[in-house]
């Protein structure tokens, strides 16, 4: 084992924090640069534009709706309510279910390190 560069704890802390901040800040610049040069981003937006100009907006088929309604009615029945009490089924805006799924995914994962 060689000699340490310095044994002054305040100096070690200062140099280390500077290096850590410097490296991580540089990595954040690299991430921004990767996003800037990303060739797939432009393609994706072009494809999206083409879709919008050439095709009509997709309309969900009645068949799909009926299946969704059947699944929801079955789920409500499983909780002990009658499907006859369902007044209407509307899509809710927002990300609550997606967020809940993400929370669940991270929560069930075991701590490994």
């Amino acid at each position: 084992m060689g000699q340490p560069v310095t044994t002054n704890p305040w100096m070690i802390a200062l140099i280390n924090m500077t290096v850590v901040f410097g490296v991580l800040y540089f990595l954040s610049l690299i991430i921004a640069f990767i996003q800037f040069i990303d060739p797939t981003k432009k393609k994706a937006s072009k494809v999206e534009n083409n879709v919008v100009t050439t095709e009509p907006a997709p309309v969900a088929s009645v068949q799909d709706d009926m299946q969704i309604i059947a699944v929801i009615a079955a789920a409500i029945s499983a909780y002990g309510y009658s499907p006859a009490q369902i007044a209407c089924i509307r899509r809710k805006d927002g990300q609550a279910w997606a967020q809940a799924a993400r929370v669940e995914a991270v929560t069930v994962r075991n701590q490994m390190f």
Binding site: M17, L24, Y25, L27, S28, L29, I31, I34
Partner: peptide, 14 residues
């Protein structure tokens, strides 16, 4: 990657 500024929070906690 979506929010690279959070890298600085990882640095501060060190």
């Amino acid at each position: 990657i979506a929010n690279p500024k959070t890298l600085l929070l990882g640095a501060a906690a060190q």
